[in-house]
Design a protein around this nucleic acid. Sequence first.
DNA 1: TTGAAAAATACAAACGTGTGCAAAGATAAT
DNA 2: ATTATCTTTGCACACGTTTGTATTTTTCAA
Lengths: 336, 336
Amino acid sequence: MKKRITIKDIAKVLNVHHSTVSRALRNDPRVNAKTRDTVLAYAREHEYQTNMNAVQLRGTSNNAIALIVPNINHSFFADIISQLTNLAYNKGYVISVFQSNEKYQQEKEIVNTIIQHNFAGVIVSIAKDTINSDHFALLKKFGIPLVFFDRVCEDIFTPKVKVNNYEITANATEYLIKKGYSNIAHFTGTTSINVFRERQNGYVDILQKYGMEYVQPIVIEEDFSVEIGKIIFSRLWNFSVKPDAIISSSVHVSTGILLEARKYGIKIPEDLGLITFGSLLSSEIIEPQITYIEQPELEIAAIAFDLLEKMIKKEIQIGELIERQVQAEIIFKKSC
Amino acid sequence: MKKRITIKDIAKVLNVHHSTVSRALRNDPRVNAKTRDTVLAYAREHEYQTNMNAVQLRGTSNNAIALIVPNINHSFFADIISQLTNLAYNKGYVISVFQSNEKYQQEKEIVNTIIQHNFAGVIVSIAKDTINSDHFALLKKFGIPLVFFDRVCEDIFTPKVKVNNYEITANATEYLIKKGYSNIAHFTGTTSINVFRERQNGYVDILQKYGMEYVQPIVIEEDFSVEIGKIIFSRLWNFSVKPDAIISSSVHVSTGILLEARKYGIKIPEDLGLITFGSLLSSEIIEPQITYIEQPELEIAAIAFDLLEKMIKKEIQIGELIERQVQAEIIFKKSC
DNA sequence: TTGAAAAATACAAACGTGTGCAAAGATAAT
DNA sequence: ATTATCTTTGCACACGTTTGTATTTTTCAA
């Protein structure tokens, strides 16, 4: 293990000043072509690697973008991460992914790390736990570009990419009503998050519009999982009035519902209709195929990245409130 | 947007030298308790954030760990990322995740970025594309701790966490034989990767041991996907001799196989047996439930992290070859 | 009250890079 | 040959921290 070579080392060997080496490496026109080539050749041969800490300390460029998501092993986020990574790569940026684990405390610490390491920008979908947005305000205060997607902080002025959750859930609910279902339940997440609040509002508003009495917003405060889906469904099913349809905010929970429903011998779509947000890799194989709501992950990623890049390039001011909405879509199958 | 505060700023205001501030912030016993408290209070109030670039340039600590995976949106890797992130968080480290996209070129650039930013250590599962290991050798040369998991570089001496691919595939093949299947095909990835090569060897060796004639290692060079699964299966099915069982290295490919099989009216397990590596979130719902090989993601993550941490703490030397093997397990269901 | 020891603080240098400015060297025009 | 212009290189400082050493201040004992 040898000590890493620096521009000063190169300068010493080639008998030039290190500033010349610096310029040569960065293709500054102010350096002679011949010396530039000599420097580049030497640098390549000795595997010179820029020390980005020095560069960033100096206050020059930085191409590192941070991405904070609640869960990496959730296909919605995994798809967005994957797409963002590709977009960034093509534009010369590098994405570092951080997982908040749905925890406010972890999210806060991640934000601190991001500030301390001087990232060029941040793309965030907040944790369920996040009740306070001071850490994001801090990010703004330090002049770090910030873009929210999907789960956003309402009280922070910055670009945001949102899904038409209210509308799509209203549409899904109305679809179920028109199919003849009358006891429609809604399984969703904590209403402190815009996503789940909007879905719930869309659901409730339609039921009220149709004068339906059976309104069951089931708020799952725990992390979405197959297990919790089983438990919650089982609990609901033992009520006096059972639902005849469910809209579920999570594929994990929906899977739990399906398994539990099978245990009880409940037939889908006859005894129970089901619409779920997000699709399963194997959704086509399941009988009956489940009607689901597809969110445009690729589009979300593309817009979020575009907005962030514009902020980094100062084409969008920090603190500017821009809201972009993308359209989710109901993919009609056989579960209702 | 205000300029960020530094220790020198604090020092100036409190009429002390900045070195005193530095020590106060780090709880150095050499600073008076009263001044320490004053400094800490002022720092907290004015939201002081350490500039890690300066710290790292100075050559002091660094708690950033890099993780390179081929694909984030693949449940095997997503689970490992998720787990590693938690382990790291509990030990005071921060994980940055990078996606190589199965591309050698991207992987190389990621490694350069890691070197340039002075990460404390790297955990890697290599891209299918990776034929050359020079970039990892470079990492070692720069003294950066490196641990491989699952897909490893055979010619780099460093800690590695591997799965018993040979053995488990041999077992799966033998199981199929004993179940009465005689034309067993094997769908796997490029054999330049240890994982797929070992699986193939396990498969071939058992068939030869039993003197089976029908040996069909189908090497999929493309990225695993439902679509490619359909195509490859369809192609194979139109051969004169059809397989009566398949071992598949990817759930995505298996899904394609199942869909295509259904299209042809093939019955599982009667007409076709199937064992797949990795499980689907919804695997319990599918009829028939698919027998699959479960890999201990949590254990892999735990061992990899432990090894890396020991390297960072110099308890393990850089360049030391340590191979840990974890056991995959066949989860018997109804598909064969 | 003095001196020595201990505690607290200040000083200075270093990490590797980038950049404005000055200086030197080369080229061209008169 | 002399001056003006352009090209190329060198110099020095700055970015924010940490740390060994020197210096000042405080404490305490004789």
